[in-house]
Every structure is written in structure tokens, then in C-alpha cells.
Design a protein around this nucleic acid. Structure first.
Lengths: 338, 338
DNA sequence: AATTATAATGTAAACGGTTACAATAATAAT
DNA sequence: ATTATTATTGTAACCGTTTACATTATAATT
């Protein structure tokens, strides 16, 4: 039977070999405190030769605090999670933090277990990427006293967040469409009741229309989930000819559905329908025509998340916004003086 | 100044309140050993009320082994990583394992740091998803004595792997195309020298052609990376009319590039060109026409990974294969008796 | 050369949980 | 009632690293 027991090399082994105390070895290996450069060199050589790996658990225990940030990602394929993590990871490493990334299952039971496992590490903070947590989980996190931050999503209850300013985003988008001559526009995929983001987007949409004296048609806000299928169903839902000239799609994946739905219905984009896609991930570049989009700066969100943590800015009700940028693609038609 | 110090609740606190020893509390909370049901109930209530969270670091330290599996994912957007993780996560939780997911940056320096951070946890194993590691990193992992497994990718040096049988996959694909009347076919995105997978696919392709007495044309194996751009360039590279009737694309993202490149060149898919896409992620369902694909069973790979770990099957040279399935889409034309 | 300042290293306790073993309590058997 | 058996709980050492404080070595100053 294969013996799985492994003689781990500890700091004591190194100390013995170097005729030093474990304390000195620890200091050297962590570049903390004072030590002689020659001894340091020796110690590092020995560590290397013995194949030493720090036991981070022991270190965490000893220091009563880790430099680990727990990151929660929804299992549902969100293709921008990568971008946020990319942003975080760079900044995190620069500052000596580690990320513990965990996919949050959809099943509630499993979610609970996941979060519990996360909390039982001595985490510095929990970052939630585009996650809409349920109340019990929210409370679970709260009792843990760990700092929390919601990225790319806004939650209620004063949980600090880093996201786009969804209200302003809608204003920019509506203005953009207006400037291109559009007067009748629909908002797809934001009619969910609960999530703050959906609410804010709706309100931003309505208010922006009002600023242009466009009367708001409740039928033009439709779709209570974020999915490809929703996009596919959009055009059949409204029927042709469409009662509007442009749609604002709440996510790239929806936009792709709309594009395909248009093709199925024999509509030309952007001639028969203009589309602007919220998110602006690489998905928007894979379509023909290329999707005009309101690009969120996900990578920056990730970076700012770490910065905020470092600067101790994660207090209740903090809301940090990153700018969006409207990237012209090929899905917006300019209407002559309508 | 806000005080970030947090009074953590330990099992000693619980013990005190319950008039028990820490040992008993530990046993109860872990469902290990013997204890009285009533005491257990009491302890659990107290734990709850105090907001106790296990300090996993301490537990890991004490037990000299954790139940944490380190998972490495390339930062480059691989859209099937999610599927593998989904598979792993379920099985892992069922068996009391935790996953520590880490994105592996592209910069070598950062990769090193990432892997080192991983290794300094008392990991049970490291699973690498579609990762092609560099030699130094490989050696780093080796010295750690931690079990390693490569998922969806085969590496050399006897590292155990779970993947599709890429040789057989090519045979199935070629047969499929042959059965649909194709005689001239190209393989795109597998001419890299180093990765085992590319080598195996090339050989499988060549051998499969030979079985049908098709003479192999070296020009028809092209493209040494996996990217959308490679797909886009494919048709310009060969020029029209194309010297083949079908392409095998080594990844979905390449396939999308080819589709768009075809559109740009005024070619009709599948009339002017048939495409079969290796991987079969959801991306294949987002295109028009829908991509016919050789679907790899990523979720199963994830599940099997955990199973293999449990059954202690991760010995050198182990290679576990999962079946592929050819999913008919709309990108394969049937040629009349050519 | 003696004294002072500084650099380098050592000592020992602590972090929170686990577990082999010992001790005690409860129950069963005689 | 006494002893044997079993159930429950306690004791104490240990996991590997860190760090406040103490000690010793080295360099600087007089």
C-alpha cells in the first residue's frame, strides 16, 4: 500500500541545519525584523535545498489574521467575473494578499455550505462578484464580522459596493440613443423586483426618457432574468413590426439572443432594430454585427476593491462607482430627424 | 479610528459556557467520537448563539492535512473551466472536500507566486484545468510532494490526467466528416509543438485520414494558438475557393472566428464550408448557424477528478478518458457521393 | 580600554483545534 | 452490593509559525 505520509519540512528543520533558532529563520523567510544578510542567504539556500514550503495555516493561526480574501462567484456563467478577478489578482499580489475564489452553487443548501466553509477560514474580507445572496446567507456573513464588498452589483442593507453607477449609465445610454435619433426604446432584462440594480436601472431609464420628454411605456420594460433565451424571445414577444426602434439589453448574453432572434424573424440589425448591450465583455466582439455596448470597467472594479480594502474604506453604505464607456459597434442605426 | 480587532469565538468559549472541556466540544462539533446527545444539542445551541466559526487553519494545522484541493485555472478565458469546476464542486462537497480555486496569471513571475502561495497551504492535491505549465513551475510542484492532476489537458512527465481521448476524438471526427462525404479537411489550431494534446490531435488526424486512404496534406494543419483571431484569419490564410470542404476547429472560440471570417469572405456555412468545433461549450449554441461540435464531457471530468482522488488513483502515468459526443448543429453539409 | 549604541539572535508563549489516553460517570451483570 | 462494561468527559501534548522581550555579539564612541 502506497504510503501517503509526507515528512514535511518545517522551519525547525531549517533552524537546526543552520544552527539558528526558528525565530530567526522565520524573520528571514518573511523579511521581517533584523537579520544578517549572510545568515539570510544561508537560510534561504537551506530552505530551498530541503524543499521547504511555508505552512500558511500555521502562520494564519499564529497571526490571528490571514491575508486571504474570499471571493464568491455565481456558478451561472458570468463572463465578466474573469475580468474582475484579473483586476483583483494583480493588485492583490502586489500587496501580499491572496484570493480564495469560490463558486457559489445555485442550490441554496450548497450555497450555505460554501459560505460556511469560506467563513471558517480567517478571512480578511469577502468579495462577492455579481452575486445576489439570499437573506439567510447574508445574515450568516454578517454574524461573522468579516468585511464584505459587493462588486459589480449593489445590494441593500448598506453592504458596500463597487459598481457602475447604474442610474447614470442608463442616462448615458438613453442620451446616446436619443442623439442617434431614437425615440422609442425598450429595456430588456431588468424587470426583476428584488435586485437593486434592476430597480435602479428601471428608474434611470424612466427618468432619462422623461428628460427628453418621452412618455414612458411600461410595456417597454420587459424580461425578468438574464439569459440567452430571454434575448431570443424578445422579438417574438413584441412581434413585428416592432413598436420601438432600439433596445437596451441588460447583458451581453441577452444581446446575442436578441441578435439571433432578429435573424430568425428576418429583421436586419441595425436597420430594423438597434441594440445597445450593457456589460461590454468580449462576447460583444464575437458577433456580426459587432455589438455597440455600454462597457463596464470590470477590471478597474477589481483593482479598486483591493485598494478600498487596503485603505480601510469598506464601511457601511460605501458605494464606489466606476465609469462606463459607450463603445460604438455596428448595431446602432442613426435615424434621420425623426 | 475604527477598530478592526475582532473577538473571535473559540471552542474554549463554548466549552466554558457549557461546562465542558474543549475536547468534548471539538468532538461534538465534528461529529467524531462519542458524546451525549443532550450535551451535543446544548453545545450546538451555544455555538450558534455565540456566532462560532471554526478556525480551519487551526484545524488544518492540528490534523497535519487539510481537505483542500487547489485548483489552477488559466486566466485566459477558457469557458469550459466553469463546467469542470461545477462537476468537481458537487462531488467535492459531498465528500467533505473544499476547493481552493486560483487563476493562474500569464506572466511567469506571477505564476510562480501563485503556485507558491498554493503550495504553502496544506493541500491534498492540485488540479490543473487546461493548464500548460512551464518547466520550473512543474518542478516546483514536484518538490512539494502534493498530488497533481491535469484535467482536460495531458501533460508529459507522467502527470496523471483526465481528459478526452484526443487521438480517438480525431478519429471520430474524421469519420463523421467522411460519412458526410468530406474528403478534404483541415485541422485548425493544433500545430503547436509543445503541448501533448496538439501533438496527439495531429497524429490522430493524420492516422484517421490514412484509414480512409486520404493522403495527408501538411498545409491542412495550421494555426499554433487557440484564439478568436486565429479563426478569423483562417479563411484569408487559405484564400477562396478553399482547398478543402471542411475544417476541424480545435476550440469553440476559433470556430466562431472561422464563422465570422466566412461571412466576411462571402462564404456560406455550411454550403461553402463545413465546420466542426472541438469542445462543445455553450458558445456553440450562440451562433447562427449553430456549430456542430465534438462535445467534451467537462463536467464528468470534474467529477471523476474527485473520485480518482478519493480512490487514490492519482499515480504516475494514470490517464483517465471521458467520452466525447458529436452534437449535430447546422454547420456540416452532406456532400453527395464525392 | 571601557562604555554605549546597535545589530543579530535566542527564548518562550501564544494562536485554536485535535486526539491518544486517562479518568470518571452511568449502566448492566453478577 | 459489588464488579464488569460501556458511555461520556477531561487532560495534556502537539501541529508550525510568529513575535514581544531578553540576551548576546558587534560596531561605534569616548
Amino acid at each position: 500500500m502506497y504510503n501517503r505520509y509526507i515528512m514535511t519540512v518545517t522551519i525547525k528543520d531549517i533552524a537546526k541545519k543552520a544552527n539558528l533558532s526558528p525565530a530567526s529563520v522565520s524573520r528571514i523567510l518573511n523579511n521581517r525584523g533584523r537579520f544578517n544578510d549572510d545568515t539570510a542567504k544561508k537560510v534561504r539556500t537551506i530552505a530551498q535545498s530541503l524543499g521547504y514550503f511555508k505552512n500558511q495555516s500555521a502562520a494564519d493561526l499564529s497571526q490571528k489574521q490571514s491575508r486571504v480574501i474570499g471571493v464568491l462567484i455565481p456558478t451561472a456563467h458570468t463572463n465578466f467575473a474573469d475580468e474582475i478577478i484579473k483586476g483583483m489578482q494583480n493588485k492583490a499580489y502586489e500587496n501580499g494578499y491572496e484570493l480564495l475564489i469560490t463558486f457559489l452553487g445555485n442550490d441554496h443548501q450548497q450555497q450555505m455550505q460554501t459560505v460556511k466553509a469560506l467563513l471558517s477560514r480567517q478571512l480578511l474580507a469577502i468579495f462577492m462578484l455579481a452575486v445576489d445572496i439570499t437573506l439567510p446567507i447574508h445574515q450568516l456573513i454578517k454574524t461573522s464580522n468579516i468585511q464584505v464588498l459587493s462588486i459589480s452589483n449593489q445590494l441593500n442593507d448598506g453592504i458596500p459596493s463597487i459598481s457602475s453607477d447604474n442610474y447614470d449609465m442608463m442616462s448615458q445610454i438613453v442620451n446616446y440613443l436619443y442623439d442617434h435619433g431614437h425615440r422609442q426604446m425598450a429595456l430588456i432584462g431588468s424587470s426583476m423586483i428584488e435586485p437593486v440594480v434592476a430597480t435602479v436601472r428601471r428608474q434611470g431609464f424612466i427618468d432619462a426618457l422623461a428628460k427628453h420628454n418621452i412618455k414612458y411605456n411600461p410595456d417597454f420594460i420587459w424580461g425578468n432574468n438574464i439569459s440567452y433565451e430571454l434575448g431570443l424571445q424578445t422579438i417574438p414577444h413584441y412581434g413585428t413590426p416592432l413598436p420601438f426602434t432600439a433596445v437596451i439589453s441588460s447583458a451581453d448574453i441577452i444581446s446575442i439572443g436578441i441578435l439571433n432572434g432578429a435573424k430568425d424573424a428576418g429583421l436586419q440589425v441595425p436597420n430594423d432594430l438597434s441594440i445597445i448591450s450593457i456589460d461590454g465583455t468580449e462576447l460583444t466582439q464575437l458577433t456580426r454585427p459587432i455589438l455597440t455596448n455600454a462597457k463596464q470597467n470590470f477590471q478597474l472594479m477589481g483593482e479598486l476593491a483591493i485598494t478600498a480594502l487596503i485603505n480601510n474604506q469598506l464601511s457601511t453604505n460605501t458605494a464606489i462607482y466606476t465609469d462606463i464607456e459607450i463603445i460604438a459597434g455596428q448595431t446602432i442605426r442613426t435615424l434621420k430627424d425623426s
